[in-house]
Design a protein around this nucleic acid. Structure first.
Length: 237
DNA sequence: AATCTCCCCAACCGCGATCTC
DNA sequence: GGAGATCGCGGTTGGGGAGAT
């Protein structure tokens, strides 16, 4: 009702910046009225989080940032906010736009140019995610993809399709409490050596918080996500 | 120079999740 | 525990710039 839509003017930006700097944003819905803006709270929040926030990084994404997006998108799908949390100064909206306008096309082109090496092999093309180089005993490798992951702990772009490879992610992954009981990791890492299992289970990020997972798939994803973040040297969430 | 087409990205929309009373 | 308010996420849109015709 009488609220303005469309692009923000520099004057509106300045009003919003000044207000948030002085009072914090508090209740977004009440903010525009208090600040004297003819915008809805939602529009103010979006403008602030995606553009005006002082820690928003401007300019093109670096190659490393793009690679990080590709890797996490491979693991997480369109969970833009989660991916953004791994890229300081980048917003979910920006990452979503970059993905839809550049990276998706680039990957599509790349995949059409790089044919799968062996259509009979369970190992097919996909992005490169190196989880660990500490391979140990591979003698127990079987045809199951899970075993292949854990015995080698290396997933290579040219060698596999990780969407077939990983257990299906459960929505509860993002909200459930977890346990320190690592026994169910055994089912995900059959035939693994105790040494390798302990490497994964006792990663630094995993020891800082007590979690309880209801099933092994969720715990698998938790550990994988954290381990990948460590190896990519990304900041903690 | 005018018009058209394509592309990018800021902003909007709808909806589920969470919070507050 | 329920209802309304608010927040935050992901999908989509459309204005405007750049290049092509």
């Amino acid at each position: 009702m009488g609220l303005k839509k469309g692009p923000w003017t520099p004057e509106e930006d300045q009003i919003l910046i000044s207000y948030v700097q002085q009072h914090g944003h508090g209740n977004w819905r009440a903010l525009p009225k208090k600040a004297g803006l003819l915008r809805c709270g939602k529009s103010c929040r979006l403008r602030w989080t995606n553009y005006l926030r002082p820690d928003v990084k401007r300019g093109n994404l670096s190659k490393e940032e793009e690679e990080t997006i590709i890797k996490f998108h491979e693991m997480l799908g369109n969970r833009w906010s989660v991916i953004a949390s791994r890229l300081p100064g980048r917003t979910d909206n920006e990452i979503k736009n970059v993905w839809n306008t550049h990276l998706k096309k680039r990957l599509k082109n790349h995949q059409t140019k790089v044919p799968k090496s062996d259509s009979n092999s369970p190992i097919q093309s996909g992005p490169c995610i190196e989880l660990s180089s500490s391979a140990t005993d591979t003698s127990t490798t079987t045809t199951t993809t899970t075993t292949t992951i854990t015995n080698n702990m290396v997933i290579k772009h040219e060698e596999m399709d990780s969407l077939e490879y990983f257990p299906e992610i459960d929505n509860r992954f993002w909200s459930e409490e977890l346990s320190t009981d690592n026994s169910n990791m055994e089912s995900k890492f059959p035939g693994d050596t105790d040494e390798l299992q302990s490497q994964i289970i006792s990663s630094p990020a995993n020891t800082s918080t007590d979690y309880i997972y209801e099933d092994s798939d969720m715990e698998f994803w938790h550990n994988l996500f954290i381990r990948a973040g460590e190896l990519l040297q990304l900041p903690e969430i």
